[in-house]
Computed example of a mutant assay.
Amino acid sequence: MTYAQRFKLHGARAVVTGGGGAIGQACSQALAEAGARVIVIERSEADASDALALRAQGHDIDWRPGDIADSARMEAIAAELAAAGDPATILVNNAAIGHSGVASEDVTDEEWLQVMNVNVNGLFWCSRAFGRHMIRAGRGAIVNLGSMSGTICNRPQPQTPYNVSKAAVHHITRSMAAEWAQHGVRVNAVAPSYIETPMVLAVEANRERIPLWLANTPMGRMGRPEEVASAILFLASDASSLMTGSIVDVDAGYTCW
């Protein structure tokens, strides 16, 4: 196998949760360009539309409706693919929600539980559902969307629920990696910095935060969705075949300071 071939995913079945959003769409495109047949999980077809538009470029991309916080639905999608003789061998746990700007003493029970239910429980439900079939097949690669927020405490905005949820994602990654390595299933994560997405740029409070974010970033800039997707492609491919349990910083050097 050549080095170039190690990055290829020809024939692989990949699932991307939240695959219609900015980073999710970039992940879907990266995997599809490498030859994978991609299924995006979104709540509605409208949410998946940006990813589905990639079909016009000849990519094999489909959609399944689902909420990652619904464990039964995640089990059903995984079982459906397996029953058709086409189980997912790549899972990108991208779907998550952000929560910032609220001091810890003002966070409500509902806000805390919502973040944990999606970012932690949902990621675990998906990993468990698709991971079972990967274990049976004896191979698979799961890539989780962590965050530098799982390592550092962001400033100036307080965001304890989000930070805690991403720290949990990192340790879920390590724990599953240690358990599933014997079954040929690798589990890694990427930990991005601030990424230029419509959601981030649309938050009015971020206009004042961004200059401080950049001042605390050695590269002096935010990241782009495709830069995160490139790291995910690497971790999903055989190019990273000796890696499992790794949290890969994609943060423009933010965590160096």
Rank of each mutant, 00 (worst) to 15 (best):
H59G: 01
G18H: 01
S71M: 09
A76M: 08
G85P: 05
V120D: 13
S44P: 10
G66H: 04
V92Y: 07
M116N: 10
L54W: 09
G101N: 10
R73Q: 12
F130I: 13
E42K: 13
Q25C: 15
R37H: 13
S127M: 14
E45A: 14
N119A: 08
W63A: 03
V16E: 04
A69K: 07
T17M: 08
N119F: 06
A14G: 10
G24Y: 07
A72G: 07
V92N: 05
T89S: 15
Q114G: 01
V92M: 06
E45M: 12
Q29V: 03
W63N: 03
I77G: 01
G20T: 00
N94H: 10
R132L: 10
D67N: 15
A51P: 02
E105I: 13
P65Q: 12
V115S: 03
G85E: 13
E110Y: 10
R43D: 00
F130S: 09
E105A: 08
R37P: 00
S44L: 02
A46E: 13
A51Q: 00
Q57S: 15
N94I: 02
Q29A: 12
A72N: 11
T89C: 13
A129Y: 09
A56G: 11
P87V: 13
A82H: 12
T17D: 02
G35F: 09
A26F: 09
A84F: 01
R43F: 00
P65W: 05
A36V: 07
G98N: 13
V15L: 11
A53T: 11
E80P: 00
A72Q: 15
W63D: 01
V107S: 00
L52V: 05
A83T: 13
M74S: 08
C27R: 05
I61H: 09
E75V: 04
A103F: 08
S49D: 09
E45N: 06
W112P: 03
E33I: 11
I77N: 05
A34N: 09
A56K: 14
R73M: 07
D67G: 00
P87C: 12
A103E: 10
N121G: 03
E110H: 12
T108R: 12
S28W: 05
S100N: 08
R128K: 15
A103N: 07
L54V: 12
G122S: 11
A36H: 07
D47A: 15
A32H: 08
A53K: 14
L81M: 14
W63V: 02
H99A: 13
Q114S: 14
M74N: 10
E75K: 02
A129E: 11
G98R: 09
I39D: 00
A34L: 11
D106M: 14
V118Y: 08
V16S: 02
A103V: 05
D50W: 02
A34R: 12
E80N: 02
N121K: 14
Q57W: 02
G24V: 09
D109G: 00
C27H: 14
S49G: 11
P87D: 12
M74W: 00
A56P: 08
Q114V: 07
Q57M: 05
A34D: 04
N121W: 00
V118M: 02
A34S: 12
N119H: 01
D70L: 14
S49Y: 01
I41P: 01
N119R: 01
R64L: 01
G19F: 00
A129V: 08
Q57K: 15
E42Q: 15
G122V: 03
L81T: 07
A72M: 01
